[in-house]
Amino acid sequence: MTKFILRRCLQALLVLFVMSFVIYALIGLMPGDPLDLMIQSNPGATPEVVARLRAIYGLDQPLYLRYLHWLWDALRGDLGFSRTHSQPVLEVLIPALWTTCKLMLISFVLSVILAMVLGIVAALKPGGWIDGLISLGAFAGISVPVFWLALMMILVFAVRLHWLPASGIANVGDGSLLDHTRHLIMPVVTLALANTGGFTRFVRASMIETLRMDHIRTARAKGNGEGRVVLVHALRNALIPVVTVMALSFGTLFSGALLTETMFAQPGMGKMIYDSILSNDFNLALSGLLFATLVTLVSNLFADIAYGWLDPRISL
């Protein structure tokens, strides 16, 4: 087991290393470069000055040298300076990470609870009309474009009904918990709805399979009530694959968070990455993307370990 975890950690590190180079190279391919922006604001710069500036910033060096230079700095905790925020990257990154975590965690819990209830109810009578309805809803959840769902929420609850604020995390001058919560409702519900569909389908499939197994028949034959059979005997076994799938869905969840944050103007990682790419804030974009990769890798690692731990049949 320890050997397995170690091997997976090494693999994850390798992927992170390769990705850091790929993203570094890709960022370099985005329109403009740091000097262009400097030249724009200083039209008097002669070609000689530009060349000297290039040399000072190391932009005349080949890609791999620039990358190694960046990597060395990054490993010492220096991720550079964000141009748009005029702050070190880490100081922009950490509050954004917190906002995203809050959004993701709340909607994750919400969608897990919803999916459990709906999945179990659907699995009790597969093929019945309740199952049909829930399946339809689950398919809708998988198929809806998240940004459009957010748009429709805004249209209905903010524009038409005026129930909830359309964007931001709080009204200016109002720091109350109620205000914060009101601003969080639509992003959380949007993200949760988008994830519940897939989760529900997994819970349902896993429950149906488990309820067919012999030990469930035995539990019924022993005279256990149906509720006890479903909740105690079946659910425990059905949860094993579900937990893995949910942990593995972190990447999807993050993509959803990126869109939700952008739509509802939540200052999280997703919106930060998006804005930094749009505004050519290279350092911030690079670090943000790497952070997203790192967190995804770690959550996948946890999923693997949890799977081996929950299911004794898997020998690692």
Partner: peptide
Amino acid sequence: MRFTDGMIALPLLPLLIVLGAVDLTKL
């Protein structure tokens, strides 16, 4: 398969956005 696993482990949407932002003239 290690390569595939590595791809699966990536956050797709941010990656797509970066790829979408690539300036073709630089290629």
